[in-house]
Amino acid sequence: MNATLRLADDIGHRLMNMFSYTFSVLSMIYLSFRTVMFDQAQGFRAIFSVVSAQIYFTGWQALPLIGALALATGAVVIMQSTAQLSRLGGAGMLGELLVAVIVREIGPLITALIVIARSGTAVASELGNMKVNRETEALEAMGINPLSYIVFPRIVGGIVSVVCLAFYFVLIALLGGYLVSYFFHDLSFVFYTDTLAQALTPFDVWFFLLKNIFGGTFIFVVCCYQGLLVKESPSEVPQVTTKAVVNSIIYVVGFNLILSLLSYVEQLTRYGIL
């Protein structure tokens, strides 16, 4: 009985911590946007320069890595799908399969994981070091709200970068992947583009945008939040960076999973299966 109570207590405690953490993270999004809306004194010129720097580091510099991964992923998925569907006589379903796998699932997920690994860690450690060096205090002392100068530009720059990178991933995966697989399979380009165009619906576009916008938000707000948790010691920086990566992955994967489940439940309902 005691063991059961302890287990229940432990689970309850963990759940409360998770809700409290989520509430704090969501509050940070609200406060940073609110500060930018209501603080009339700030110079948008200074904030815009931080946004553009964030887009450069997160988006532009990640293009080669994302491109290589997209090419490899696209080629593998297209080759496997063509081979399997041809055997089953379902070659006409290739477009639907690629949209479901690459546009809806793999594109947003791999992009998010790359951004977490490259930029999430950079943001968390940069902000942690800023706290250690009293840079955030210095900003406050100058009348510069760290939420509008540090957090807001990183979230906005992060969202823009993630959406653009995911779009770039999907484009390279579908077109570059076709070119690579062309050497192994006799797949007509006209047939390929036609089946893709027929499969892609406005719902897929919304689904893609929703996953990437929220994914980008979660990654950067969690990393900013963790970075700003550092108190005074440099030894805290790697600890918060690790936690930022783990928490970002949990939030992004969790959100993507929930969204995908909801969409498939909706599809099953539409087809009368549920």
Binding site: N129, M130, N133, R134, E135, E137, A141
Partner: peptide, 10 residues
């Protein structure tokens, strides 16, 4: 306010 240590943006 001026800092004794730190406080400058790196």
């Amino acid at each position: 306010y001026t800092f004794n240590l730190g406080g400058i943006l790196n």
